[in-house]
Design a protein around this nucleic acid. Structure first.
Length: 660
DNA sequence: AGAGTGGGCCTTTTT
DNA sequence: GGCCCACTCT
């Protein structure tokens, strides 16, 4: 007799009324059965809502939170989704793993570092640290820099990084992305090998290692794969269009035993190919998972029909995409306004003036944003807003944790946690007057191979490498390091920061920088922030993987009524009532570097992302001239404007009245 | 030789 | 503002 199995157990009582709270498209995806599922969610169609309710549904169906893994693009996105499930839907999610690929990889690798030849206290290198280490590897590898014009360290680093993220060989990355370095492929390979070796010796991982070592762990350690395959019975991935080769491989492996994989994304919003993202991942998902269910969300709740038709008209010109037409449900509004302005100053003037008018009409500044392709394009706007006293917040440019003084202070902490972290040593040593590149390198080379570099330093192992003039400051640094080594100190990161400041760093700041007071304040903020951490190692990981303090602290979105200035990349997933899109000039957007058709399509997707951030009003501005190399340059409107049908925007004029 | 200073140059996007 | 290079000082 044939036997059929059915699921048994008590019928599940759902507290949430899914039919009522979701539209039919969303509902279908949220309640879909186990197995691979792909949700193609256009901009503003309730993607976050869908993932959030999917999590809720799984929990309500009896899954334990710790058997779910939720991968998102930023840590903030994960936190917001989980908070919504917890507070709005009243479910407890303790134990659920949510965060970025890098974040989750880091948690896993801390546990299993030994299996890969690392110690669990490894340091995480940010981009700049990685470039510095590559630079020393270029030196060590004995590359004949005279013979060719060898690429700069940051280029070499990006080649190595792309190799990891795309799974391609160095020669393939070089020949497809930067063909002018083809003759140096072999040398670059040598540097890459050396770089790998050094990272292992110094017990440090760069961002890419958090992914590649994770993948290695799963591939080389079947027991580990079994363990996590068994634990995470449901895997959800947000922004799947921005995953790269290695991330997709990780996910495929993590889900290999059960295939309960729920991925959400929008191919039209894939904007990270420069760091290896490949939207083939999303396009080919149905091929890789033949039994995948595919859902489409096409009802846009965010924007007026006018804004949406402009966005649709633009993205329609891309060849490589899943065709979909978003339809609006909001009532009609105003046409997007297209404005040619004289120059960047008039552009800034218009933005500021319009903001003040809107504010006078009762709109909060927090509902407005200025978006741009590149950081430098915010300069004049910043000055103009300051002049008019309009409060603003910049979401781009150098991040808090990448500023020199923050990195200096954390370098001391990094040494205390991982005494083999040569990059941190190098940084600390160079703060001493009279010690430059060369001496710092020699001292590092003497200390790092020791079993206990810190003890060695305190014992005087490096003393004879220091000249007399630097003696006093050097001793002071030794004294400081000795104090950081006190028992239990690693459990009190904010105490450590205070010791560093008192140990001479504060003096250094005042001697070195005119704005020392502001920097001291930043560091006090950092000390404050670190109170929340019970361990210095955890603090350092978090600093490396989180972009701003606001990412963790309570300044959450909006209600502090400030205009937001942001790069388009960082604006992804956000929305404002009014959006000003500036610098829409050919050569600037698309960037002059975007030459191939592929580049152009990615830039167009970026334009699409920008336009779809707006709920009610969209302003498209292009200055006709801008300061360039050797005086003012004349600029034409972006091809993304010229190619639009004339009926999706309204051409407006700027009238300037001088007020004396 | 190696450290420090001043001037000219450029600026894509990020975990 | 940051980076590189050339120049000067120790």
């Amino acid at each position: 007799m044939r036997t059929f199995t059915i699921r048994s157990g008590a019928p599940v009582a759902f507290r949430i009324d899914y039919e009522k709270e979701l539209n039919p498209e969303q509902l279908e995806a949220v309640v879909c059965p186990d197995g691979p599922a792909l949700v193609l969610a256009g901009a503003g169609t309730g993607k976050t809502r869908t993932v959030t309710y999917r999590v809720a549904r799984l929990i309500e169906s009896g899954m334990k939170p710790d058997s779910l893994m939720l991968v998102t693009f930023t840590n903030k996105a994960a936190r917001e989704m989980l908070q919504r499930v917890e507070s709005v839907l009243g479910l407890n999610l303790r134990g659920l793993w949510g965060g970025t690929f890098h974040h989750i990889g880091n948690i896993l690798l801390r546990r299993h570092a030994k299996l890969l030849g690392y110690e669990g206290n490894y340091s995480i290198l940010d981009r700049q640290d990685a470039v510095d280490l590559v630079d020393t590897c270029v030196g060590d590898a004995g590359v004949d820099k005279e013979r060719w014009r060898f690429p700069k360290a940051d280029i070499v680093q990006s080649i190595i990084s792309l190799t990891v993220n795309t799974g391609d060989s160095i020669s393939r990355v070089v020949s497809t992305r930067m063909p002018h370095f083809i003759p140096m492929t072999e040398e670059i390979g040598k540097v890459a090998v050396r770089y790998e070796l050094r990272k292992q010796e110094l017990n440090v991982m760069d961002f890419d290692d958090l992914l590649s070592n994770w993948l290695r762990l799963l591939r080389e350690q079947p027991a580990v794969l079994d363990q996590y395959g068994g634990q995470f019975r449901q895997i959800l991935v947000d922004e799947y269009q921005d995953t790269n080769f290695i991330q997709a491989a990780i996910i495929d492996l993590m889900a290999s035993s059960h295939k309960n994989l729920f991925v959400v994304g929008d191919d039209a919003q894939s904007i990270y190919s420069f760091r290896g993202a490949d939207f083939e991942n999303i396009i080919s998902f149905p091929k890789r998972y033949a039994d995948a269910r595919v859902f489409r969300l096409t009802t846009n709740y965010r924007s007026t029909p006018e804004i949406l038709s402009l966005a649709n008209a633009s993205i329609r010109r891309n060849r490589r995409q899943f065709r979909k037409d978003l339809h609006a449900v909001r009532p009609e509004g105003r046409s997007p306004a297209l404005l040619a302005v004289r120059d960047v100053y008039q552009q800034a003037g218009f933005v500021a003036q319009r903001m003040m008018d809107l504010h006078d009409d009762g709109m909060d500044f927090g509902k407005m944003a200025v978006l741009y392709r590149s950081h430098y394009q915010s300069m004049e706007i910043q000055m103009e807003l300051t002049r008019h006293g309009i409060p603003f917040e910049i979401r781009s440019g150098l991040r808090f944790f990448e500023q020199a003084h923050i990195k200096d202070v954390t370098a001391y902490l990094r040494i205390a946690v991982n005494p083999k972290d040569e990059i941190a040593w190098f940084r600390v040593l160079r703060l001493i007057p009279g010690i430059g590149k060369v001496s710092a390198r020699k001292i590092g080379a003497a200390l790092i191979p020791m079993d206990d570099p810190l003890g060695g330093l305190i014992g005087g192992a490096a003393d004879k490498l220091v000249r007399k003039a630097s003696r006093k400051d050097f001793d002071r640094m030794i004294d400081l390091m000795a104090r950081l080594r006190a028992p239990d100190m690693l459990e009190k990161p904010s105490e450590m920061i205070r010791i560093v400041m008192a140990g001479g760093y504060e003096e250094y700041l005042f001697a070195e920088y005119p704005n020392a007071a502001a920097r001291v304040e930043d560091i006090e903020q950092l000390a404050e922030y670190s109170m929340a951490y019970a361990g210095t190692a955890e603090l350092l990981s978090s600093l490396a993987l989180v972009s701003t303090m606001g990412d963790n602290a309570a300044d959450d979105e909006g209600e502090n009524d400030k205009v937001v200035l942001s790069s388009i990349h960082q604006a992804k997933g956000l929305e404002w009532a009014v959006v000003f899109l500036v610098w829409l000039c050919e050569g600037r957007f698309p960037s002059a570097r975007a030459v191939s058709e592929q580049d152009e399509e990615e830039e167009r997707r970026l334009f699409y992302v920008a336009a779809t951030r707006a709920r009610e009003e969209l302003y498209l501005l292009y200055p006709r001239s801008a300061p360039g190399a050797g005086g003012n340059m004349l600029l034409g409107p972006s091809r993304f404007i010229l190619e639009l049908p004339g009926n999706v925007y309204e051409r407006c004029a700027v009238e300037e009245r001088n007020v004396y």
